[in-house]
Design a protein around this nucleic acid. Sequence first.
DNA 1: ATGGTGGAAGGTCCA
Length: 261
Amino acid sequence: MRIATWNINSVRLRLKQVLRFIKEQKIDVMCLQETKTPNDFFPSKDFDKIGFVHQYFRGEKSYNGVAIVSRFKFKDSGYVNWCKKNDTRHIYIKINNNIELHNFYVPAGGDEPDISINPKFKHKISFINEMKDYFLSNTKKDKILVGDLNIAPLEQDVWSHKQLLSVVSHTPIETEALLDLIQTGEWVDIMREIVPHDEKLYSWWSYRNRNWEISNRGRRLDHFWISKNLFSLVKSGVIYKDTRSWEKPSDHVPIIVDIDF
DNA sequence: ATGGTGGAAGGTCCA
């Protein structure tokens, strides 16, 4: 089974790119973040046409929104309202063998990395802490977690560790919280299991840099995790950088993982 | 030190 995750920054504006990606890469289950559209306007029929008739999505006007579209039937679906908000940042489904697949869009956190003055940053930290509590109390062992977590946890997950230490996405408060979440949840960070920690690895390049490929000031904000006991089933994992060069690109690129079930 | 760009809106917020 080939599962992919991608923050597409508007599912309606990026529809052609998503369909092209699914087709070219032969994706089976596609997880999307930042769909930015209410459920009534989600382009269901366009996914039906390519055989992705199994769909679950939660969206809202202008902001957030997550979706899972699949060529395989899934058993169950649901979501959690994190931080007592109803802001469409999470859904899950159960794929075959009752494996839970969670799709997250974690708050970006604003500009100021200080919970006492920046409510957005406080929200982000609370969100990560709630995820930790949730997966500690959810004792089910067979899980996958994907999405835009808006944190680049390791030194080589950003173009300059030193220069980004006080930039939201790479502050110690965030990176320590995320690494703690990985550890306590007994997750394997698949891409970092495959790519050595001393190699740069990014999934996002800002729109604000026209020469994004030359300057290569990226960050690894997007993640694909799996429960430790399932990791032996993972056959490959790739951050698919090509889409960043496509016409009208998202600023994020997809992650593709092959799992043997 | 600042602003650079893009998306959903149709002014302004968010990333």
